[in-house]
Amino acid sequence: MIIYQPLINNLSHFQSLKRLIDADLSEPYSVYVYRYFLNRWPELTFLAFDSESETSDEPIGCVICKSELHRGRRMRGYIGMLAVQSDYRGRGIAKSLVKKAIEKMHQDGCDEIMLETEVENVAALNLYENMGFIRMKRMFRYYLNEGDAFKLILPLTQRSCVRTTFLDDVNGIDIL
């Protein structure tokens, strides 16, 4: 059985998470990237465990996120990394992890969720687009592996659909 838990109070899993993600991502991330996400937004990292496995305390999947005020106007959730151990793929674990993360960011007041993914990563595009994300723009040679990326956004509130320049700031004061 797959169990999902937030990372909070589980920082001991740091090395396992790093290993899990390093195995798949084309971008080599330094320890600082992980620390940046995990130390500041531990509540926005979710782990998946296989309770029936011999190593049931080792995560077999994770999603790492953050949420911040975007240009002072809009709360933006961001999915930074998502990985599922290869022998656990095709079981909807990634989808469940992303869903949990979005639910949490939604509860926290995010207006939208954003992420980037490789244009060639059809599996990731299908996953996110099936959850309602749309491609906002294409970014030329975005990754170190020279591939293009799509920036995907899932709008959660109407504020996501207004240009930042025309939004009131979070305190309700319109600068225009």
Binding site: E112, I134, P155, L156, T157, C161, F166
Partner: peptide, 12 residues
């Protein structure tokens, strides 16, 4: 929301 987000560049 999806349509409005898609048309965001023209919203103003």
């Amino acid at each position: 929301l999806l349509l409005e987000l898609r048309l965001k560049p023209f919203s103003s």
